[in-house]
Nucleic acid binder design. Structure first.
Lengths: 334, 334
DNA sequence: CTGAAAGCGCTTACAG
DNA sequence: CTGAAAGCGCTTACAG
């Protein structure tokens, strides 16, 4: 394998000069630079980034740890992260935890061993241990989408309370009084915040939240299906699904029960399903700016790498409701 | 930062002994092992994998380069790869090329610099240059899903010819005579093979392929939409979409044109859209074993890393047709 | 079963 | 603008 030494020999310079050329660091005479570049090309030289990183203590690598790689919300976030990172010369390690705390711990340990410069973490739980472990080793961290407890750290997330409020306010405005919430895991801040927005909107309409109409589960199709099955007996006239996959499960139950949307039951959802998902009906939704969220989080992480002592900051991105054909006035009481 | 040396000092042994404990390599007395492990834990020691890899010439890292990270086919493949890799102690770098040859080249260069042990590549084109570059640097390679030209390399893919034949044969069996193919990029082996299976099935039914009914495009919703718009004037009674995203685009056109499926037009597709995609109608499909494909490819790559001189091998996984409600006999001629 | 010495391929820190 | 020397934190190769 050819090394910087071989290139140096061929170009008639010292290894350190080759290093300067390859890293665009320090002064090199244009002619010297050209001779080095030519020698490198002729030898098919491939820089050894392991040696570089090992010596310089910089890997130019970030990691993005998400909870469900099959959810288009997260793949869209990933594109935002990747675009910002690669423009700044960083590579990104994508990791998928399946909302599993143990898996998350294993990934964090692996990333620490690899000496990534920074981590963007969508935490699988509110437990701050992993963030703490990263900070102890002086790895940059930005928490995505969710809040965690007891740790001072940068956060970038969408406005769940406001989004939930908008959706449920829309439903009460249409005259709905029996609105169910199919929420995510009870322990996550996003679940709690969407439930808070839901209750605020109910109260604003003079309604009292009914425990039987609020279910916690998981951000999966199967969970949406199970929660919706349980709910049918309680005769909701509208459903608020806390994410897109929950909505997909709920819609399957609705279809199987022979109910029509929006005539028999209205449906609203947090997070859109993009184009390729040929949904019917077309859902009233709160859209989080997933791509912008990825970009903002990556940008913040790069800033933190340069200024480690910046005070932690929470960035809450606004969300937007799009009213489509899945919502209408409730059916007249039977 | 604490090093192997600090751990050694605390445990009262030599650094090499710590190395042996951490890597489970060579003989270590159980008591010595325990002392070392305790010292490492007390010091919150995090092994420096950069130093390890740099010295040992092994990174325990693979890369998976796919063409569209938003397509569930590829995320499912990714899970298969990840499961096999992590069981064997390897991490996986996920890279997304967007079917862009230049982006692929950049990723391959970055992976070479990082000295990944092996690469699973779904090539964005039939050009073998990147595979050649990997092989020259003695990086293991397995090509996924598609064939490339002029390079001896392991390949793992689904049976496109057979899958296409099955779908189109199903349509001719129902009585269709005007069957259109919305294919992927003309230069890719998968596109050519699906077109070949399509033509074979037509000929087997005594039909002559009609150039106006075969369109090449891209594996995207937008391309499916555009191709389908162009096709409407040619009055096909059935559509064969070469992948799931093309089908999604075509279905939008069909819906906008006020056509019903399957009454007015039948639709078949290569690659399923999974659960969360609440499609209507439910499509007749050829399913590739995406998860198994990922597993098989990763397993092959691990084998090759251990036996670099194995002759190249092509593994073609069988595919399965599932007949659902999007296909029926063609409407009577107007 | 354990260790002392050398070296992996770069960059840092210092000179000139 | 260029270079000689030292060293990053491990593992290899050899000894005992």
């Amino acid at each position: 394998m050819t090394t910087i030494r071989d290139v140096a020999k061929r170009a008639g310079v010292a290894p350190i000069t080759v290093s300067r050329v390859l890293n665009n660091a320090g002064y090199v005479r244009p002619e010297t630079r050209q001779r080095v570049e030519q020698a490198a090309a002729e030898l098919h030289y491939v820089p050894n980034m392991l040696a570089h990183s090992f010596r310089s203590h910089r890997t130019n690598t970030l990691a993005l740890v998400v909870t469900d790689i099959t959810n288009p919300f997260w793949t869209t976030v990933a594109r935002g992260v990747e675009d910002v990172a690669s423009a700044a010369g960083f590579s990104v390690f994508f990791c998928n935890t399946d909302e599993n705390e143990a898996k998350q711990g294993q990934y964090i340990a692996a990333l620490l061993r690899r000496r990534v410069d920074g981590v963007l973490l969508a935490p699988a739980s509110s437990n701050g241990a992993d963030v703490h472990a990263l900070q102890r080793q002086r790895v940059g961290v930005v928490v995505l989408d969710r809040r965690i407890e007891g740790v001072a750290v940068d956060i970038v997330r969408g406005d769940s309370v406001d989004g939930a409020f908008q959706l449920v306010h829309h439903l009460t405005g249409l005259g709905h009084r029996r609105i169910a919430l199919l929420a995510g895991p009870a322990g996550l801040s996003v679940s709690q915040e969407r439930a808070a927005g839901y209750e605020q909107a109910l109260r604003a309409a003079g309604l009292t939240p009914e425990p039987a109409l609020l279910r916690f589960g998981a951000f999966t199709v199967a969970s949406g299906y199970a929660m919706m099955r349980d709910l049918l007996a309680h005769r909701p006239t509208a459903i608020f699904a806390a994410n897109n996959f929950i909505a997909a499960g709920a819609l399957t139950v609705i279809r199987e029960a022979g109910l029509r949307t929006p005539e028999d039951i209205s449906v609203v959802v947090f997070d859109d399903l993009p184009d390729p998902y040929v949904t019917a009906p077309v859902l009233t939704v709160v859209v989080q700016p997933a791509y912008a969220l990825g970009r903002a989080a990556a940008a913040r992480l790069l800033t933190r790498l340069q200024q480690p002592d910046l005070p932690p900051h929470e960035l809450v991105l606004p969300v937007q409701m799009i009213v489509r054909s899945s919502t209408a006035a409730p059916p007249p009481p039977a």
